[in-house]
Design a protein around this nucleic acid. Structure first.
Lengths: 367, 367
DNA sequence: CTGAAAGCGCTAACAG
DNA sequence: CTGTTAGCGCTTTCAG
């Protein structure tokens, strides 16, 4: 790779000169896509000149004038988590479609790094931020953003006073609970997520409601931290101490931990024990037995968040409606009806229900 | 949320005014972190004024002057793939540490969207791009970037003439092959990735080399597309037609597909059949039996790419050394020694080897 | 050690 | 329909 031509980058006035028009005319063809009142010949001459000079507008100059960067930021606890990376895909795609670029910021599950990133974003002059806070949100940081007129939308988390986009966690959880009751479970244990995460609370509450509707009380409610490891360890404990006929976890990762804990304890799933999760992450499709879970539309949450944020940016002064996206029950092979459990036939009972689609990663071109 | 105070944003001259200094002095305190020659009193006065006015520099204005945006872009085929999201984490973290923000672009596995994004990035005036091309790279697009003096580094893919950062795919694959031979396998089938992906080619070639060194020839070599589905379907075919005693896939996703194909075909793993993958993606840790695979340091690849790119941006004119990161063999329970296979004891043979660490996702705070 | 002044490249009134 | 003009907010010589 030799040296590059030091030929200086063409500016708008170079284009104007070459096209034999004024710079404002060039500016017009750059900005007004529409058949703006402008003679086609003029327009074409400009276009030709731009092409000839390989002209690219300097974004900083435009931003300076328009006082808008058309950049959005997505701040998540861990971009390598499947929920957040799907969310990111949704945000990026929806943003791109309306002319926004997406800055990605990973707070590495640390409130401190989250704070750092928020300051950085302020300095970056992003037009808006989609936030998934780490645990209990940093109100001070949010306050600063709002004060700087940088709109914020939270995704998959609720913060009073901030517009948000989330899934119907409570509703989905409630349906799941009712399903388990219908399957004949009476000794149900729940393994929830952290208390400072609204999502976890909603799921827990919804589950208890659903159970109550079926006239069932949980045999135990524990708190994990949404990790696989906590699923394994708390799952082991629950199985040892509570003698449940079903364990439902607040997310899939913990549910898979429970699955493995059950295997280690010699309990067959679903014959001896029903297991269910929440999220329907891609990974789940690779685990056997297939997990009964609730599909959360992360991609859509991302898209919706981006759209909501852009709406806020444009209206520039008031909040948009909070959004709650529907979820759907996914019946796998980790739960079955009481009849089947008694028979213990070994025939995969999940097959009797709506079969979960094959939702494995397209994975394509992966490393 | 009510209306915001329409109080206009403070500029550098407001600060100067309040501090009773000139704007160039303010500029100096903003930019020269060091104990730049400047009286502490002056400096403090400025700092106070900035705080009092809640001053944040307008990035567009700085960028316009400095002709540098301090923004990097990461363009990947699918950010929701675990390799790429880990890569992204690495890029973001390493970039952030040296003052760069990261724009994330998802080409959605489409060469066309890739092209679109490249143009968009040019208009965005990013300082550099980390690219993971979709299939065979778009030379024209790259040409345009270089012509515009936007340095590009590819990650996990090689393109002649472009600096890249990748893992030692060939080496890792070779070691894996040798290990299988050492375990007594003689009927080995290989399920590779797409031919237009350098990574896939390296892995295949390395594997064949390793096999050859052990004096073994593969019973079959097939091509998948790195998806789980192709692992299942081609795995099924291979098992039916080739009677292998081991199937090695070019990545974990396909290997898991093979695992499931084997289960469906009634072949026990590892007693009847050895299976191995490549990547050591997080998902793999959730699958049983645990996969024997090769750990690719995606996070580090990301970090390295970011550093290399920044180096190119600063030197601004010449290429940096290509980088090849080491990989490591991960022995799981999906392979075992011939002895164990003959005994078919059912004792998990993987245990005899270096046990794979528990590398499950921290998953924390997940949705 | 600090200030004055000259733009960076572009957009958006405002005139023709 | 097109040109002129006045900055956007900041960094950076160049002089004190």
């Amino acid at each position: 790779m030799g040296s590059r031509k030091p030929r200086k980058r063409a500016t708008i006035s170079d284009v104007a000169l070459l096209a034999g028009v004024s710079i404002s005319t060039v500016s017009r063809v750059i900005n007004h896509e529409d058949p703006s009142q402008m003679r086609d010949v003029t327009r074409d001459r400009v276009l030709d000149a731009m092409a000839a000079l390989d002209y690219t507008p300097v974004k900083a100059a435009r931003d300076l004038r328009r006082r808008r960067t058309h950049v959005l930021a997505l701040l998540v606890p861990d971009i390598s988590n499947p929920f957040f990376s799907l969310l990111a895909r949704g945000v990026e795609a929806a943003g791109f479609r309306v002319g926004y670029s997406t800055l990605i910021c990973d707070s590495n599950n640390s409130k401190d790094e989250e704070r750092q990133h928020m300051s950085a974003l302020l300095r970056q002059n992003v037009d808006g931020v989609i936030l998934v806070p780490v645990g209990r949100p940093d109100l001070a940081g949010l306050e600063r953003m709002e004060r700087s007129e940088v709109p914020v939308v939270t995704a998959d988390r609720r913060i009073p006073g901030i517009p948000h986009v989330e899934a119907d966690n409570a509703g989905g959880s409630r349906e799941l609970a009712k399903r388990l009751v219908a399957l004949g479970h009476r000794q149900v244990a729940y393994l929830g997520g952290p208390e400072d995460v609204s999502t976890a609370e909603d799921r827990l509450q919804g589950f208890l409601d659903g159970l109550a509707e079926g006239g069932v009380a949980p045999v135990a409610v524990r708190r994990g931290d949404f990790t696989y490891d906590s699923g394994v360890s708390l799952g082991t404990e629950i199985l040892r101490d509570e003698h449940p006929d079903a364990v439902v976890a607040g997310n899939d990762l913990m549910a898979i931990g429970v699955l493995h804990a059950a295997a280690a304890a010699g309990r067959r799933v679903p014959e001896d024990l029903g297991v269910a999760g929440f999220d329907d992450i891609q990974w789940a499709a690779l685990v056997r037995p297939r997990l009964t879970t609730v599909r959360v539309p992360f991609l859509e949450i991302g898209q919706c968040s981006a759209r909501a944020l852009v709406a806020r940016i444009m209206s520039y002064d008031d909040a948009v409606e909070p959004t709650c996206l529907p979820v759907s029950l996914v019946i796998g092979d980790s739960t079955c009806a009481a009849r089947a459990r008694e028979d213990a036939t070994g025939v995969s009972p999940g097959e009797r229900f709506r079969k979960r689609g094959d939702r494995t990663s397209r994975g394509g071109s992966g490393a």
